[in-house]
């Protein structure tokens, strides 16, 4: 139990520190790397509370795919750091406001303030009663029965976003030469070459 508490404080401290470094660090590539560290430690926190499925999905989706693409883009961009710093004071109030709103919502949701406390304890009691199974199965059962429509809607929203991004960036430019694999494979020996009998000193 002591070891678990110790592990929690270590992971939580690293998560918070890495989160702060994402904002503070001067180099955007460092920011993304600290973001990855924060994701990773959040996954460790999930493992500590026994939500190993969510932890692994967090690592696979965010660390393994999303953050790679972030890093990809940030490394390619030639970001001017002084320009980036200029807007800081201008945007600070908006950012702080969003932070306060998120924090308040979290407090409400966790039931520390107000009457929301029933939900989370109720969920825990519910979970403890019916779950001799591992949490992967538990999530699957809830997701594909009770929240089936919401789950499908979430999927469709993501699909629409993906198609939207493709439509926005897809341009048909005339005169672009492409590799057509079907044509290349279907080319026969007769089409590709001719055998010529060359007379001596005659040339082709």
């Amino acid at each position: 139990m002591l070891l678990q508490a110790l592990a929690f404080y270590v992971f939580a401290a690293i998560t918070v520190a890495a989160g702060a470094m994402v904002v503070v660090s001067r180099n955007p590539v460092y920011s993304v790397l600290f973001l990855i560290l924060a994701f990773f430690n959040a996954a460790a926190l999930f493992v500590l509370i026994g939500a190993e499925f969510i932890a692994m999905i967090l690592v696979i989706v965010y660390v393994g795919a999303v953050a790679v693409l972030f890093l990809f883009v940030v490394m390619m961009l030639d970001i001017n750091l002084t320009e980036l710093r200029e807007g800081f004071l201008k945007y600070f109030p908006v950012g702080a406001l969003i932070g306060v709103v998120l924090f308040a919502e979290m407090l409400l949701g966790l039931g520390i303030v107000g009457a929301g406390s029933a939900t989370i304890t109720g969920l825990n009691a519910h979970g403890a009663q019916v779950l001799p199974i591992d949490n992967t199965r538990a999530i699957g059962r809830v997701l594909y029965t009770q929240y089936f429509y919401l789950f499908q809607v979430a999927g469709i929203v993501l699909l629409v976003a993906m198609i939207g991004a493709i439509v926005l960036t897809l341009r048909t430019r005339p005169g672009v030469r492409r590799q057509k694999v079907g044509d290349q494979i279907n080319r026969t020996k007769e089409q590709a070459m001719t055998v010529v009998k060359v007379p001596t000193r005659g040339g082709v």
Binding site: F53, V59, V63, D134
Partner: peptide, 25 residues
């Protein structure tokens, strides 16, 4: 012997790319 062994392997193998991309940068 964890319950999510396959996911763990998949997650770790997806981290391998960081060594390469950080090295390149």
């Amino acid at each position: 012997d964890i319950n999510v062994g396959i996911l763990y392997l998949f997650a770790i193998s997806s981290l391998g790319v960081y060594g390469i991309i950080i090295a390149g940068w």
